[in-house]
């Protein structure tokens, strides 16, 4: 062994020991912080504790949230400003999320509200103020710009090494931030976006994009959706109550196939939303292609494997065998 390889081994061993030590530090942590929004002079309604603020065009103001570490260890908290979005469950997400904003969202809250530093390092048993600077758009707007500020510990509880199937808990605090200006009662308006076949979390579904195109919430909505044949025979139905749409957001409304496979063809979506004493009725024809059907059926973990082809193959082979056998038997009989 050369001197060089020996050195390499020693260096690597040191590295491994170092990593193991670090991981123990991470394991020893537990969840223990809290947040308290501080009253702002811009607050519209004093009975609310999230930030519900009136802003004037071009106004600059800052709001604060007290973050407290109650543990006896130093912790780091990530803070972020997030756009309010609508998830497929009809719940508005104020934390970081993978859902979509509508193209009508011209000024996302992330352009208006900023925070620095994005990470707070807190000594044991101490508090710090997280400061959020609001720089209201110079141009006037009517309605609301909505979002949330979230607080999450950087190294959450590490998995205990329990055998089998277990769950690690993670915690997040979210404080709403809604900026108001101008006329408050905007007329609600929903539009239908794309309608298509999809696979999500290993399951087949049809999604209908519901677009809230206004700078206002649309709350307590009821949705009734049907996927039908083009001759209006209902194949799949889905209803949901208490849906809330965030301003200028897109909800991917799911109509699940519940263990059925996609068949290629032409379909019809019939969807009704009732909210704010209004009713929107959307009808849209859409196509599921052979490629889509095959792709998503393969991804659906709840489907029983399709044996149709196998049955045909086995059946054909059996027929051939019976045929051959009968032919042989007949031949033998004749010979005799």
């Amino acid at each position: 062994m050369t001197k060089k390889t020996l050195t390499t081994i020693i260096v690597m061993l040191c590295g491994v020991v170092g990593l193991l030590l670090h991981s123990q530090v991470a394991h020893a942590q537990s969840m223990d912080f809290s947040v308290e929004p501080q009253k702002s002079s811009l607050q519209r309604d004093q009975s609310k504790t999230y930030f519900d603020l009136n802003v004037k065009p071009g106004q600059k103001e800052s709001v604060m949230v007290k973050v407290t570490n109650t543990s006896d260890k130093r912790i780091k908290i990530n803070t972020s400003v997030n756009v309010a979005k609508t998830n497929p469950n009809g719940v508005v997400e104020y934390g970081k999320s993978r859902f979509k904003s509508d193209k009508t969202l011209t000024t996302p809250i992330t352009d208006v509200v900023t925070t620095a530093p994005k990470q707070l390092s807190l000594a044991p048993k101490s508090s710090k103020m997280a400061i959020f600077e609001i720089d209201a758009p110079k141009q006037k707007f009517n309605g609301v710009i909505a979002g949330g500020i979230s607080f999450k510990k950087v190294a959450p509880d590490k998995k205990k090494t329990s055998k089998g199937i277990s769950v690690t808990n993670n915690y997040q605090y979210v404080v709403g931030m809604v900026l108001h200006q101008g006329r408050q009662k905007l007329t609600p308006m929903l539009k239908l976006g794309d309608v298509k076949a999809k696979s999500e979390a290993g399951r087949n579904l049809v999604t209908a994009q519901l677009r809230n195109v206004k700078k206002r919430y649309l709350s307590q909505a009821k949705i009734v959706a049907k996927v039908q044949t083009t001759s209006k025979r209902t194949l799949y139905k889905s209803t949901k109550d208490h849906v809330q749409f965030a301003p200028n957001s897109i909800m991917d409304y799911p109509i699940r196939l519940n263990g059925e496979r996609f068949k290629p063809g032409r379909y019809r979506l019939d969807l009704t939303v009732t909210a704010a004493k209004k009713k929107w009725h959307f009808v849209r024809e859409f196509t599921i292609t052979k490629e889509q059907a095959e792709k998503y059926n393969n991804q659906d973990v709840t489907l029983k494997p399709d044996h149709t082809m196998l049955y045909w193959a086995v059946g054909s082979v059996l027929i051939v065998i019976i045929g051959v056998l009968s032919w042989v038997v007949i031949k033998m009989k004749r010979k005799r």
């Binding site: 999230y50 055998k163 199937i165 404080v175 709403g176």
Partner: peptide, 15 residues
């Protein structure tokens, strides 16, 4: 084998 997933509990002060 051993499987672990993560649940995030969110406490919200929101509209």
């Amino acid at each position: 084998g051993t499987y672990n997933g993560t649940l995030t509990w969110t406490l919200e002060d929101t509209p």
